[in-house]
Design a binder for these strands. Sequence first.
DNA 1: TTGAAAGCGGTACCAA
DNA 2: TTGGTACCGCTTTCAA
Lengths: 343, 343
Amino acid sequence: MAVINNRPKPVTIHEVAAQAGVSIATVSRALSGSTTVASPTRERVLAAVEQLRFRPSRLGQSLAEGRHAANGIVFPDLSGPYYAEVVLGYEEVAAELGSSVLILATHGRPEPTRRVLELARRVDGMVLMGRTVPDEVVSQLTETGIPVVLLARPAVGESDTVNVDNEHGTRALVKHLARHGYQRFAFVGDPAESPDVAGRYAAFRASLLEAGRRPPREPLRCAFDVSSGRRAALRALRRALRPEVLVCGNDETALGALEAAAELGLSVPGDVAVTGWDDVMAARYAGLTTVRQPMRQLGATAARWLQERIAGHGEPVRRRVLQTQLVVRSSCGTHDHESEEPR
Amino acid sequence: MAVINNRPKPVTIHEVAAQAGVSIATVSRALSGSTTVASPTRERVLAAVEQLRFRPSRLGQSLAEGRHAANGIVFPDLSGPYYAEVVLGYEEVAAELGSSVLILATHGRPEPTRRVLELARRVDGMVLMGRTVPDEVVSQLTETGIPVVLLARPAVGESDTVNVDNEHGTRALVKHLARHGYQRFAFVGDPAESPDVAGRYAAFRASLLEAGRRPPREPLRCAFDVSSGRRAALRALRRALRPEVLVCGNDETALGALEAAAELGLSVPGDVAVTGWDDVMAARYAGLTTVRQPMRQLGATAARWLQERIAGHGEPVRRRVLQTQLVVRSSCGTHDHESEEPR
DNA sequence: TTGAAAGCGGTACCAA
DNA sequence: TTGGTACCGCTTTCAA
């Protein structure tokens, strides 16, 4: 137990007050600028602050003010470009609006609920992404009075919700694939893994049915990473009746599918077409047809709404569904007009 | 000013105490488990806690305990896979060790110093990455008693420092390129942009000189993104005496260089070779020769050390330089033995 | 085993 | 314009 903790203890407002020969109330006023302080007094205070290198304790301040001036974002994971971009968009706006940003990755960790509730004790509000906590926890938070904005997940109660349009994005994709003339579609990805994938699979299935086709087989369930995608795609591609298209839940899965095809000596898109979701940087170099979603904007919108909720204006519940963009590259088939790819 | 802030005010320890018919001291003890509390009393307290859904205020707790139980990481940006991976590695370990994690991206924002000092008021310690704040701020923080771990930047004073071995990584790369027989090397990237790039350029220059070559020209300065890399590479490739190799400061720059070459109708590696740094996911699909660095491990090590500093054991200063790995792909030239690429 | 009370470091109201 | 002081919500001595 030989803790040799020799940190200088922080300067407090009392020492500044003593040094300047005023009361702590005056120091507080001089620094906040709220009330008027006589110029000479202010000078003395600021000099003392300067000299003692006084930085007010955030804890004292927050306790007195009754707010943290911080908010948080909870997401499954930060690996892979998708979440990183969303978090970046979030941080950017939150910082702009004067809040500190706490992050919490739940994926693969025990007790996500406990961690989220712990986070809730240090913030004025939080953004919850995807499949991080059960609905009950969302309700519990809002009942406790903590504003919550949901991101990339279904609405719960009266919380604001921001989502991407999985429905239309998928339909546009399937429609494009249908024009290529493909008949046998397979979906790679686990709807249970994330609400987004669930939405994409549902739309995939629905649009095939509406086109008068047979219902697709069960999705080839797999996690979000490349190697899981590869394994799942191998299963599909080894079937007697090989699918003509692998519609993948996200880009990393699709990149794994490309690997699988290569491994089996199948050409893409000749023997099998492959599509993804997200349009991560690698997708471009892999020639992957995919659906781009506005990742930063998802985070930015959530941050802005959260701040407004915290400010406490009584806006009605807001739900936003951001649009996607089909990005056609080579992996879905050959095209006459070179490059539908947007700049 | 019509703020309709109707949040239920949080349950405090006093209400729990009243409900359980004990003092707040007893409630605190019953919850912390530190001191002994008679079983029946504890039962009553826990029942009250349950019934009132009491969650202790983090602010009160931290103020009394004299610690935040949180720490922070400051980085230039979160876009691009590099920082995201480092932050992920950091968050993972920090959370494991029981700290909440605050993030702060400085890049392109005004007043990075003010923001960092503001962050310093809410954490027990922090990790500072790359070119985020000037050395004086680092000193100022440590003098104030806030433990700091530096990441991907030169040491300052007595702070722990974690870096990647830019020196050896670059030498291995240049050596490999020299074996290809290339004579005219150009460096793409701005040493002023980050300490890492500075280190890479220095090693690049040194190893060429040591090999008895003429000193290379000035680096083609550019920012870290693909399009900046593209523009810089265009400048180089349009020179009368075209370089045979573009050694780029990071992968995104290199991907831009690949674009530039394609634009000019130059084949890679036939007409010009290109290399990167980081081994981001896209590098693989672009066939980019690069140097892999252990990004997560950088973050993880920093988090662990920071925690130890905060715990206050008086270890001597630590400096770690993590090793890199050359990843040879097609962009640097043709190879006999297919794929030196590690799995 | 429990309670009273003194902090922890601020903010803001009320008087002077 | 300033000072005194009552909080904010918790932890932790010190006594009982």
